[in-house]
Simulated assay, not measured.
Amino acid sequence: MKKVTGIGGIFFKCKDPKQMQEWYKTHLGLDTNDYGATFEWREAEDTSKEGATQWSPFSETTKYFEPSTKEFMINYRVADLEALVEELKKEGVTIVDEIATYDYGKFVHIMDVEGNKIELWEPK
């Protein structure tokens, strides 16, 4: 079973997310918005399929990364999230929450062996 198909996003804590977005916009040319920046691309195997990777600075006080105490979180794109979660449960991986479904895909959070919270995303 294919698990991770790519990186869906890079999320990190900082003192001032708006200032961070402006710095990256000014000095590195990121096209930022309220959520950070979105990098759009096409799949190599089928160029008719589009994808995106999100870059997002979060406030250093965000609770979104909990229960992890780390300064970052990575979002991985996956295929068949429900089957993957069942497989991860059998392997003893900590599943933080239930699968949530939105108009842009399904999400769930897990913890790795060093306590990093990981976001798994099955795009629509």
Score class of each variant (00 low, 15 high):
Val4Gln: 01
Phe65Gly: 03
Lys106Ala: 03
Met73Trp: 01
Val96Arg: 05
Glu122Ser: 15
Ser68Leu: 01
Leu28Ala: 14
Phe58Met: 10
Gly9Ile: 00
Lys15Thr: 11
Phe65Arg: 03
Phe72Leu: 09
Tyr24Phe: 13
Glu87Lys: 09
Ser68His: 03
Ile99Thr: 04
Thr38Asn: 05
Ile7Lys: 05
His27Gln: 15
Leu88Cys: 04
Ala83Thr: 13
Thr26Val: 14
Val4Ser: 02
Lys89Met: 02
Asp46Ile: 07
Lys117Thr: 06
Phe11Thr: 01
Val96Asn: 04
Lys3Ile: 13
Pro17Gly: 02
Gln19Pro: 02
Leu81Phe: 09
Leu28Val: 14
Ser68Asn: 03
Ile7Thr: 11
Val85Cys: 06
Glu114Thr: 15
Phe107Arg: 15
Asp80Tyr: 10
Phe107Val: 12
Ile99Cys: 01
Asp97Val: 05
Lys3Phe: 12
Pro123Gly: 01
Trp55Lys: 01
Tyr104Val: 13
Tyr104Pro: 11
Glu119Ser: 13
Ala100Pro: 06
Glu119Asp: 14
Thr5Arg: 09
Thr38His: 05
Leu30Arg: 13
Gln19Tyr: 04
Tyr64Pro: 00
Val96Ala: 07
Val108Asn: 03
Lys90Gly: 00
Ile118Glu: 02
Lys18Thr: 12
Lys70His: 14
Lys13Ile: 11
Lys18Leu: 15
Tyr64Leu: 11
Gly29Met: 01
Ala100Met: 14
Ile74Thr: 11
Lys15Ser: 14
Val108Thr: 09
Asp16Lys: 13
Ile7Ser: 04
Asp97Leu: 06
Met20Glu: 13
Ser59His: 14
Gln19Thr: 11
Asp31Met: 12
Leu28Thr: 09
Glu87Ser: 15
Tyr104Glu: 11
Glu45Leu: 15
His109Trp: 07
Asp97Pro: 03
Trp55Glu: 00
Phe58Thr: 05
Pro123Ala: 03
Asp34Cys: 03
Lys106Cys: 00
Trp41Gly: 07
Asp31Gly: 07
Asp80Ile: 04
Gly9Ala: 00
Asp97Met: 09
Pro67Met: 08
Gly105Cys: 03
Thr26His: 15
Ala83Ile: 05
Gly115Ala: 02
Glu91Gln: 06
